[in-house]
């Protein structure tokens, strides 16, 4: 399979704005699937609602276009009953970290074998550029014209602390890195999260002095630092920069592996409530 084989070509052109990073993420994802030789039938794409939540419009695998914030919950149900499937949850930062933040930490804690791909454009693109839970403190948006009084989440640290098996970050400028991180994440049996810093020149860029798509690309190029190098930066050098690459994870058995033990115990009749009278 080639990347193009996963693409619904009749859905072109992409619905996303000029300069939006989502197309780059979509392409990297399809290349990763091709590299892994995933068949269309073994692959399930679950989306939330938002600009990046429309990625399923273009993907020829199984898919469900769900509800805002609940993609990970839906994906959890899919993976739980069929651990053999490759399950991807494609979400914006609002979807994944704001309205869906509770599902994110629990998916990580549960270590369900789903790969979360988060297009973090630092705001709600679909609804017109309001601030989200990843918008930096001080940044402007259509609902923070005086500067965001709240601080943004570091999504990778959040998911890592909650127990994700693999967390990684790339930007839309680093498309090759993104592709290889996606390959790693999709191959990981537990919960993996790939955060992709993505350009939204139309809203985030315009509100914050970088309305030009090329300038936004340069911004990613300059502010992203490979994780190993980032660790060595002095605190003042870290200002305005962030690490990319594989950023952590924990080596625990995935949910499905643990649940198989539960099924074995239940089948052996070890359950406290299994009574002769009711267990048919």
């Amino acid at each position: 399979m080639k990347a193009r084989d996963y693409l619904i070509e009749e859905a072109m052109p992409l619905f996303w704005c000029r300069g939006c990073g989502n197309g780059i993420i979509l392409h990297a994802l399809l290349r990763a699937l091709a590299r892994l030789g995933k068949s269309r039938e073994e692959t399930v794409v679950v989306t939330g609602i938002g600009c990046f939540g429309k990625a399923d419009d273009y993907i020829r695998t199984h898919s469900i276009h769900g509800t805002h914030g609940r993609a990970l919950a839906i994906a959890t149900g899919v993976k739980a009953v069929n651990p053999g499937l490759t399950v991807l949850a494609l979400m914006g930062d609002g979807d994944c970290a704001t309205i869906g933040g509770n599902h994110l930490i629990h998916a990580a804690r549960r270590n369900i074998g789903v790969t979360a791909v988060v297009a973090n454009n630092l705001n709600y693109g679909m609804t017109g550029g309001q601030f989200s839970a990843t918008t930096p403190q001080g940044a402007r948006s259509s609902t923070s014209s005086f500067g965001n009084p709240e601080s943004g989440f570091d999504l990778c640290r959040l998911a890592g602390a909650a127990g994700a098996a693999l967390v990684a970050r790339a930007t839309v400028y680093h498309a090759a890195l993104l592709e290889s991180l996606l390959v790693e994440a999709i191959s990981c049996p537990g919960f993996s999260l790939v955060e992709v810093m993505s350009s939204c020149p139309v809203y985030y860029g315009r509100y914050n002095g970088i309305p030009d798509p090329a300038a936004m690309m340069r911004w990613w190029q300059e502010s992203a630092v490979p994780a190993s190098r980032y660790a060595e930066l002095a605190p003042e050098e870290k200002q305005g920069r962030f690490p990319i690459g594989r950023l952590g994870g924990s080596d625990r058995p995935a949910f499905s592996e643990r649940y198989a033990r539960v099924q074995e115990a239940a089948q052996a009749g070890a359950g406290r409530w299994i009574q002769a009278g009711t267990d048919r």
Binding site: V44, V46, I64, G66, T67, G69, R70, A73, I74, A75, T76, G77, V78, K79, A80, V81, N82, L85, N102, H103, H106
Partner: peptide, 13 residues
């Protein structure tokens, strides 16, 4: 909300 989401995912599978 998650329960209902997981039910939908499981049924789809």
């Amino acid at each position: 909300m998650a329960s209902m989401g997981a039910v939908i995912g499981a049924s789809a599978a």
